[in-house]
């Protein structure tokens, strides 16, 4: 049963990509194809393109990516807890307090990033 699910996942991806490939092939068959230099230029409002667009990034994207990474990983840690949330029984209070400690650390991290102006979009 489990293997069927993963065959599904693979096959859905293959079918979706196959759809794109087939429609691009169909496009190649029915559409005209006359490339020339001006047509294949990068679009820059009609001007000649100035330099390459693949430049160095601003550091703020990097910092946002790092913050995202931290929070996304922590969210994954919280999911197993959330799934079993109803089954803790007599341990409930202890487990909840434990998760609160985790949440507080997470919130402190957010407060730190906030204070350090990481979240500021200049």
């Amino acid at each position: 049963m489990a293997s069927q699910s993963y065959i599904d996942v693979g096959m859905f991806a293959v079918i979706a990509i196959g759809f794109v490939v087939v429609s691009m092939w169909l496009n190649r068959v029915v559409a005209p194809f006359h490339p020339d230099r001006a047509k294949l230029e990068s679009y820059e409002c009609g001007e000649d393109p100035l330099m390459d667009a693949q430049i160095n990034f601003h550091i703020r994207y990097y910092v946002f990516a790092l913050t995202f990474f931290v929070f996304d990983v922590e969210a994954i840690f919280m999911y197993p807890w959330a799934v079993n949330f109803r089954n803790f029984g007599s341990n409930a209070l202890f487990v909840i307090v434990e998760m609160f400690v985790f949440l507080v650390i997470l919130a402190l991290g957010l407060a730190y990033a906030w204070r350090k102006k990481v979240l500021q979009w200049v």
Partner: peptide, 10 residues
């Protein structure tokens, strides 16, 4: 579907 497929040189 009938449009030319354009991939810029760059």
């Amino acid at each position: 579907l009938m449009k030319e497929d354009i991939i810029p040189l760059a």
